[in-house]
Simulated scan of single mutants.
Amino acid sequence: MKPNTPLHNNNKGNISSTQKQVVFRCLSKNIATATMVSQATGIAQKNICRHKRALEKAGLLCQVERKMCKCTGFLAWYLSTSPELLNNGKEVGQ
Rank of each mutant, 00 (worst) to 15 (best):
K2L: 12
P3L: 11
N4G: 00
T5D: 04
P6V: 08
L7G: 02
H8G: 02
H8T: 10
N11S: 14
N11F: 15
N11M: 09
K12A: 12
G13N: 10
G13F: 09
G13C: 05
N14Q: 15
I15C: 14
S16I: 13
T18Q: 10
T18W: 03
T18V: 08
K20Y: 11
K20C: 11
K20T: 14
K20Q: 15
Q21I: 10
V22F: 13
V22E: 04
V23I: 15
V23Y: 03
V23L: 07
F24I: 11
F24D: 05
R25M: 11
C26F: 14
L27P: 02
S28D: 07
N30A: 09
N30W: 12
I31F: 13
I31Y: 04
A32T: 05
A32S: 11
A32L: 14
A34Q: 05
M36N: 04
M36F: 14
V37Y: 08
Q39T: 06
A40M: 12
G42C: 01
G42R: 06
G42E: 06
I43N: 00
A44D: 06
Q45F: 09
K46S: 07
K46W: 11
N47M: 11
N47P: 00
I48C: 04
K52E: 04
K52F: 06
R53F: 05
A54T: 04
L55W: 14
E56M: 14
E56N: 00
E56G: 08
E56K: 13
E56R: 11
K57V: 11
K57L: 12
K57R: 10
K57E: 08
A58F: 13
G59V: 06
G59N: 05
L60Q: 07
L60V: 00
L61W: 00
L61I: 06
Q63D: 04
Q63G: 07
E65L: 07
R66S: 00
R66C: 08
M68K: 12
M68P: 02
C69S: 15
C69D: 12
C69T: 06
K70F: 13
K70H: 14
C71W: 13
C71E: 07
T72F: 09
T72I: 05
G73V: 05
G73H: 10
F74Y: 09
F74W: 03
L75E: 04
W77K: 00
W77V: 02
Y78K: 07
Y78R: 09
Y78P: 02
Y78L: 15
L79S: 04
S80K: 03
S80C: 10
T81A: 15
T81N: 08
S82A: 07
S82W: 01
S82C: 09
L86F: 08
N88V: 05
N88K: 03
G89R: 15
K90G: 01
V92N: 01
Q94M: 04
